[in-house]
Design a protein around this nucleic acid. Structure first.
Length: 268
DNA sequence: TTCCAGGCGTATC
DNA sequence: GATACGCATGGA
């Protein structure tokens, strides 16, 4: 990873990074592609710090209107730039199916998202499709002027959230907000405790089952050993890994899952 | 019209 | 503990 200032922008040189593969692969739902630009460009935010980022070539990125301090304190972490994904892919590629998946979409990185936003997003994701998930989260952020902290949702009723058109999920969002505010579920504790306990804690929230809990752990607190199993990954396991994942995935099952998810959905 | 979407709660056995 | 079914909404 290297970077330099370029006027008001940061120019970033980073291998194993592709904007479409990372920002539009179903791990984050708040990035919007700006198709009016010449280069692949996304507009989004992390912790309500806005960003426009474009890819100017293989491994070359422009973070618009970004100073060095914001880059180092916010985006360096968010895009997980301290992690060597080339090394991860080499490890995973001991397995030949994994090697194909890594080769198919090798520019995926596991974003270090906000824990509450990730939990809430994957509550919304259940029995839903990606365009509609984005729509609901978009309306949520538009209404509250950024992603609302759980404190702002905890005392609302499902009727108050009718504008989201989230259906039966609205009451789940509110239950999550209530349990985070009361401390019954503690995301700081969930970062540290053994993964089975963390899953059990998250499942105290009504509307959080095993799949949503694993997503919250993987995408929200970067527990790379979390392994969300949805309908797509179920197909992967049936087809290629009926006896479970190979040993080279140990500890990074969640990252393997990212490559496999993209591979089975859009590859062949 | 019917089916499906990065599941889960509930009822029933 | 396993399995069947309903669930809000909207696009194909």
């Amino acid at each position: 990873m290297e970077y330099k200032k370029d006027g008001r922008d940061i120019l970033l040189y980073q291998q194993d990074f592709d904007l479409d593969e990372t920002l539009d692969c179903g791990q984050a739902f708040r990035w919007q592609r700006d198709n009016t630009q010449k280069n692949v460009t996304y507009v989004g935010a992390y912790l309500n710090v806005p960003l426009t980022i474009s890819q100017e070539g293989e491994g070359v990125f422009r973070l618009k209107d970004t100073d060095e301090e914001t880059f180092r304190s916010v985006w360096y972490e968010y895009f997980d730039l301290a992690t060597d994904y080339g090394e991860i892919k080499r490890q995973l590629s001991e397995d030949c199916t994994m090697a194909k998946a890594c080769g198919y979409a090798g520019g995926i990185r596991l974003l270090r998202q906000d824990s509450w936003e990730a939990l809430c997003s994957f509550i919304i994701s259940q029995n839903n499709n990606i365009p509609r998930i984005k729509g609901i989260i978009g309306r949520l952020c538009e209404h509250f002027g950024g992603f609302p902290p759980y404190e702002r949702l905890a005392d609302l009723s499902p009727e108050d959230l009718a504008f989201l058109r989230a259906g039966f999920r609205a009451k789940y969002i509110i239950d999550a907000a209530k349990k985070l505010r009361s401390g019954e579920v503690d995301l700081e504790k969930i970062k540290r405790e053994p993964i089975e306990c963390a899953q059990k804690d998250l499942m105290k929230i009504c509307g959080v089952g095993p799949k949503v809990a694993q997503c919250a752990l993987l995408y929200g607190v970067h527990r790379t050993e979390a392994f969300p199993v949805d309908v797509w990954i179920k197909r992967v396991l049936e087809m290629w890994y009926p006896l479970g994942l190979p040993e080279c995935c140990e500890g990074i099952e969640g990252i393997a899952q990212q490559y496999l998810f993209h591979y089975i959905r859009t590859g062949k």
